[in-house]
Write a protein that binds this DNA or RNA. Structure first.
Lengths: 256, 256
DNA sequence: GAAATCAACTGGTCTGACCAGTGGACTGGC
DNA sequence: GCCAGTCCACTGGTCAGACCAGTTGATTTC
């Protein structure tokens, strides 16, 4: 049947650097080269693959731009394997936005969807351990806010809380994407974020929000947990998006 | 205040190829180099940037692996600008799955979320033009199924329908990501997809589903439109995911 | 006028070289 | 024995020049 409309597919040449990159990528993704391990030096790879150094280097460039490895001049151990992360995703999302293929408003709306779904699933599937961990993180946020140690440590704990929710939702992909979108958003309106007028008040409100989320998740109230994420993001970002996009953002607010 | 916890950030060296790649990427993303336009030849870029050819080539490799350009040996016009697409996203998602950082089940679940939300928003925001276009595409699917021209053309029209829904939802990002996830899924279980026992029956069911979606969107019944996407994906893929993931997939089925 | 030929390109690859930076071995003084 | 300083082999980053296979368009040939 498949022979009807496309008996043959066009064959395009495979470059040498592609096959080198593929071989290395396969070993990284299969776990044979775990994060933290080292690749041989470039000159060693040259002799192992039987190609020139420029070919090896182009392959390494591709892997590096995909965030799979990192290399440092002078390092006698060779390039370091980083493993797969969400960096590449957020980079791609940032490009989409920068090229005006999608707007900041769409990014925010997308994040509303992801976090809401994360919360919803967490409310249904969370274990006691998940709840304990989330409560711990909120406690840590509270102490950080009290100590006045600045926003950076607070934001890190914030991210950990979201990660804990993602774990409780039993879908790592939701969490990874939400993180990627978050990073892309921060990259775009970073300067405005840094200008939070009163950091203390902001942290207090953030803690309050997280506690509500935790309560909803603990109670297993999936719709409410989802709605909390939507509302919080809308309230926080609505003023930052293009005025024309605001009605669309509001359209994503209610499920019903 | 920011001076408290991180007065200085570490400065890492910027490689020459990075700055070359950045300059070109900026021009592509800003629209100054629209899709279809051509970059100068490598030797020309060498003299414009004042760097060696290997540096230029590594920069082009990075851009090419990001899907922004494409080059072909012997082409006197130089590398072609492709613009931003979802390819990079699906590539990143495929890597996540291949490295077992997320499972096929999570991918499917993620797609359920995206398509459901796309349908929901489309049901609220669609215009008459959107509805007309969707109806046209369903008509085209019907004629393709009747003509027995094979699955490929049918699947293309299918993709166009989903794109039309995404347009109606006024959030391109949802559509792009759904497409990326779709591609990643196809890449993983491609062989099983190709083995659809009875293509005719499958196409008939697909058309039926699309008609239901269109009806819900036309009626403005957002919850129902969303639910249709969830159910269809669940019904189609539930048998293909790891048995342990099935309860999780089912958990994402109902909103309530 | 159509077909075969040719020459001037292109990108892909290889080689060999140099540089700045890194880290371990070696050496000195204590 | 220990620590500081020096040194050197080696790394990745970059450059220059070369060759090849393939494309393209003009030129020649019939």
């Amino acid at each position: 049947m498949a022979a009807f409309d496309a008996p043959f597919t066009p064959v395009e040449p495979v470059r040498a650097y592609q096959r080198v990159a593929e071989q290395i990528e396969d070993r990284i993704l299969s776990g044979e080269l775990p994060p933290g391990s080292r690749l041989p030096g470039e000159r060693e790879l040259v002799s192992q693959f039987g190609v020139g150094r420029s070919t090896v280097r182009e392959a390494l460039r591709v892997l590096q731009s995909a965030g799979l490895i990192r290399s440092r001049p002078g390092d006698p151990l060779g390039a370091e394997v980083l493993g797969v992360s969400a960096d590449n995703l957020s980079q791609a999302l940032g490009r989409l936005t920068r090229s005006h293929l999608c707007s900041l408003g769409e990014l925010i709306q997308f994040r509303m969807v992801l976090e809401a779904e994360s919360n919803r699933l967490a409310a249904r599937l969370r274990t006691e351990d998940d709840l304990t961990r989330m409560a711990e993180l909120i406690e840590r946020m509270r102490s950080l806010a009290g100590a006045g140690t600045g926003l950076r440590a607070f934001s890190e704990t914030d991210a950990l809380f979201h990660q804990a929710v993602a774990e409780a939702s039993r879908n790592a992909l939701l969490g990874l994407c939400a993180r990627a979108v978050h990073d892309a958003v921060v990259e775009i309106i970073e300067h405005k974020i840094a200008n939070v007028a009163d950091a203390t008040a902001w942290m207090a409100r953030s803690i309050d929000h997280h506690e509500q989320v935790l309560a909803a998740i603990r109670a297993g109230d999936a719709p409410h947990a989802a709605q909390l994420a939507r509302r919080a993001l809308h309230a926080y970002y609505a003023d930052h998006v293009e005025p024309t996009a605001r009605p669309l953002l509001t359209a994503a607010l209610e499920e019903e």
